[in-house]
Amino acid sequence: MGTFTGSFKGFGVTFAHMFRKVITTDYPFSPPKPAPRYHGRHILNRHPDGLEKCIGCELCAWACPADAIYVEGGDNTDEQRFSPGERYAKIYQINYARCIFCGLCIEACPTRSLTMSNEYELARDSRQDLIFTKKELLAPLLPGMEQPPHPMLLGETDKDYYVGALTNPGTSVGAERAPISQGDAE
């Protein structure tokens, strides 16, 4: 008797599930929103006038435990200026076939040039395509930004750029602050 009702109990569980809400996510049709601090693909940010924030200091490459980042510095000149100050990244590469998305690089970045987005659809069919260069990594030009090289538009020296860098537009805004704290928790 107990056995008989017991098996019905079991089927009951299965049957009850037919009326429950489906728990399966609907990726890729409505991709889920990852946690705000999910470690996704990197972004190299820009100053409000479009100059690159990256100064080519290679601290990200140093911090990287997987040796996924390669940077070569270069000299800014008055004719060819890519970032405020003296130095910029002539070559910047992140090898996503090595990157483990640990985020040590963005912690190491002294200018908050390197931040992470929540993008994760990165699979490619060649290892070459997985090496992202400045072309892929640089943030898009927002309204008011100009494609470098161009002279410093926001001030005389690089110091003018770093004062107030917290309120810069672009993806580095609030990169070190919880976006939730701004009262929007969607």
């Binding site: 990852p34 998305f101 699979a123 290892r127």
Partner: peptide
């Protein structure tokens, strides 16, 4: 296909 990530999430 090469899939980056360490480890990749199921969506990836």
């Amino acid at each position: 296909v090469y899939l980056p990530g360490c480890p990749p999430r199921p969506e990836m």
